[in-house]
């Protein structure tokens, strides 16, 4: 319960960063923190106390395995997160070239 709540606090720090900061790079960093918190929450749900990792071995049967399904879902989400971060960085660099600033309030006022 405390662990889940700490994970949500991490999530809310990311939301604060996205809502409050004006720099585009800070907003990208906030989205990254949100993504980390989401991935960690999935992995926390699947954890079992005193569990073993979901890899079978040759000579012993494993009874108490952690849940492998959230791990499989998160594995794809991590790589997608990297690609989306790269896309956001490319858009931010283009905006910097056009307007000369990362401040989102200044970008709003100029017209191309």
């Amino acid at each position: 319960m405390l662990t889940y709540f700490l994970c949500f606090i991490l999530f809310s720090i990311g939301v604060y960063c996205v809502l409050r900061k004006r720099n585009l790079i800070k907003i990208i960093i906030g989205l990254g923190i949100i993504e980390y918190a989401g991935n960690l929450f999935f992995a926390l749900i699947g954890y079992r106390t005193e569990g073993r990792s979901p890899i079978l071995t040759q000579d012993q049967a494993i009874k108490n395995m952690v849940d492998p399904l959230p791990q499989a879902l998160v594995l794809t989400a991590i790589v997608i997160g990297l690609a989306v971060t790269a896309l956001m960085v490319a858009i931010a660099i283009r905006i910097y070239e056009k307007y000369g600033t990362f401040d989102i309030t200044k970008i709003n006022k100029l017209k191309g």
Partner: peptide, 15 residues
């Protein structure tokens, strides 16, 4: 490191 503690070595390497 948290993934490693949570017994998810695939996720730890990828992350």
């Amino acid at each position: 490191m948290a993934f490693l503690v949570l017994k998810a070595p695939d996720l730890a390497i990828t992350q």
